[in-house]
Simulated assay, not measured.
Amino acid sequence: MLDPNKLKGSLNRNRRYVIGIDGLSRSGKTTFVEKVKAILEKKQIDCTIIHLDHHIVEKHERYQTGMDSWVEYYHLQWDVERLRDALFRELATASSLTLPFYYYAKDECRDEEIRLPSEGVIVVEGVFLQREEWRAYLDHVYFLDCPRETRFNRESEHTQANINKFQERYWKAEDYYMNKVHPLSKADHVLLT
């Protein structure tokens, strides 16, 4: 788990410390982030949480594009280059970020500003976080490793009923990520969840 005393030594006044929480769908990332946030707050370390799922693109950009559905999920779910430029490159030093926020009910994205503390920790949480375009901007990465069956059982019964979507979209993209990017070996810590 996170050692805030070691972390304090990594913080300085010119740059924030950026922690990535990576893991496949339903591996426990959000729960882990809440624990990290509580630890940091207890040590009075400013902390900002960024959930990548808040920054996906509109449906017409990621569904029924003519590509295999797993390719859409892995390559089109996020505007990878925009997030690299507007989010990841700026995390350590910018005073604020302007990012696209996705609103599910209206299937639309709106640019909004996030203010960042002058010093402290930024925690970025999301699937496929260690892709080549983003990994270099993360100071420390935790990968939450959880068996597929366990993760699938965490889905609602309604969601589980559409197993074909998992087989064709999510699991193929996850396999691609695990085999191409090798997040287990690139993470600083791997935690079994």
Rank of each mutant, 00 (worst) to 15 (best):
I163K: 00
R13D: 03
K172D: 06
V141S: 03
L40D: 07
T30Q: 01
Y103N: 06
E108S: 06
R89C: 09
K8R: 12
R82P: 00
A94C: 09
Y102F: 15
Y63H: 14
S27Y: 13
G66K: 13
R110T: 08
R62G: 11
Y74R: 06
F166T: 05
L99C: 09
Y104E: 07
H189E: 15
A38H: 14
R15A: 10
G66Y: 13
S96L: 09
R169P: 08
L191D: 09
K6P: 03
R115I: 03
D107E: 11
Q160I: 00
L184G: 08
S27K: 07
N153V: 06
Y176N: 13
V124C: 03
A86Q: 09
H51V: 05
R148T: 13
L11V: 03
Y63N: 11
K37Y: 06
C47P: 07
Y142E: 02
W171D: 09
A105P: 09
D22G: 00
P117Y: 06
R16I: 04
Q44A: 03
D139M: 06
R82E: 10
P183T: 10
K186Q: 09
G20A: 13
E119Q: 14
N12V: 05
I50C: 05
T193N: 15
R16L: 06
L83H: 04
G23P: 12
R89Y: 07
A161M: 10
D111W: 09
S25R: 05
H182N: 15
S96Y: 13
E81R: 08
L11T: 00
R169V: 03
Y177I: 13
A161I: 01
E174K: 11
T93K: 14
Q77P: 02
K29D: 10
R89I: 02
I19G: 00
T31C: 04
Y176A: 14
Y102M: 04
L91G: 13
D175A: 13
K59D: 09
P117S: 05
L191M: 15
D53C: 05
R148F: 12
L129C: 09
N179I: 05
S156F: 04
G120D: 12
R89P: 02
D22K: 01
E112D: 05
E157M: 04
G28I: 11
N162I: 10
N164A: 14
R84L: 01
T98G: 01
C109E: 11
Y63I: 14
I163N: 02
V33Q: 07
A161P: 01
I39E: 12
S10H: 05
